[in-house]
Amino acid sequence: MRHTLTLLLGGPLLVLALAIPLFVTDSYILHSIAMVLFFAYMASSWNFVCGYVGQLSLGHSAFAGVAGYVTVLLFTQLGVTPWLGMLAGGAFAALLSVPVGYATFRLKGPYFTLTTIAFAEILRIWLENTDDFLGIPLKGAQGLTVPPVGGSSFLAFQFDGKVPYYYIILAMLVGVMAATALMERSRLGFYLKAIRGDRDGAEALGVDPTRYSLTALAISAFLTGLGGAYYAQLFRYINPERNMGIDLSIDMAIMTIVGGQGTILGPTLGALLLHPIGEMVRATIGGSFLGLHLILYGLMLILAVIYFPKGIIVPLQRLLDGRARKSASRKAAAKTDALEGKGQ
C-alpha cells in the first residue's frame, strides 16, 4: 500500500517538478520553489533518523551549519570546489554526529531533545563568538560570504540564473528519498522501527540500539550537511544564526511531523504545505507582523499532534486507498444492506 502511494503521488509530482522551470520563468518564484524543495530535502534528512527511530532531535541544524562552514572555508581558503567541499562538509557533520549521538541516544524523550539543543547551541554560541580559530577566519556572528567568481561556473557552484540551483536541489531531494526507500527495506530500517516500537523488545531480538541509531544518525547528519552546504552556496553567505540556529532544526522537525514521520513522502508533504504558507504570510502581512508564520507553524504542529499524530499523509493515504476500494466496497455494502433488509 505504502509503495503504491509513493508512486501514485511521487510520480506525477516528480514530472511536475521537472517541468516547472519550463513554464516558471520568474526567478523569484523559481527561487521560492527551490526553497520549498530545500526544506523538503532537509526535513527528509531529519526524518532519516528521527522519523524512524522516534526521537525528536532539535540539534540537526548544527550538522547543516558545520558542513556549510566547511564547504565555504575550503572554497575561500584553499580553492577547493564546493562540490568536493559539500562532501567533505557532509563527512565532517557525520563524524561530529557520532560522539554526539553516542552520548545522546542513551537518553529518551525530552532528555534526548534538550541535550541535542544543548549541543547545537554550544556550537552556535562558540561560532558566534569566535573570529579566528587556529588561524581559520570564522568571523563570528558576522558570518562568511562566498566571493562571486563572475558568471556561471559549474566548478565554483555558482550560476547566473536560478534554474541550475533548482535542478540541483531537486536531484538532492530525489536522492534522499531514494536513500530513505532503500533504508526502509534494509535491516537498518527494520531495526530502527523496532527500536521505535519497543526498545527492550528490539534488544532481545539482537538489535544493539546505539549502534543502529548511530549509523542512521551519521547518514542523516551527512545528508543534512549536504543541504547546509547547498544553502550556503545558494545564498553565497553563511552565518551561525541562520544556518545553525534552532529555528532551522524546528522547521525540519515540524515539517516532518506534520507531513508524516517515518515515511518517504511525509517530510516533503509537510514542506509543500508549510513552507508556502510561511512564505506567503511573510510576503504579504509578515513584514509588519514578525513571526506570524511561526505562529502558524506552531498551530499546525499542535493540530497535527492532536488530530493526525502520524501526519497528514495518513488521511491522504486513506483517501487514495479508499478510492481504489470504493467500487468493491460499494458492492459489498449493497449486499449487506440487502441482507439486513431481508432480516427485518
Binding site: 513571526g291 511561526l294 507553524y297 506552531g298 504542529l301 499542535i302
Partner: peptide
C-alpha cells in the same frame, strides 16, 4: 513535548 513545542512557537511569536 511536540504539543508544548507548538505552544512555545505560538507564545514566543
Amino acid at each position: 513535548l511536540l504539543l508544548t513545542a507548538g505552544v512555545y512557537l505560538v507564545v514566543d511569536n
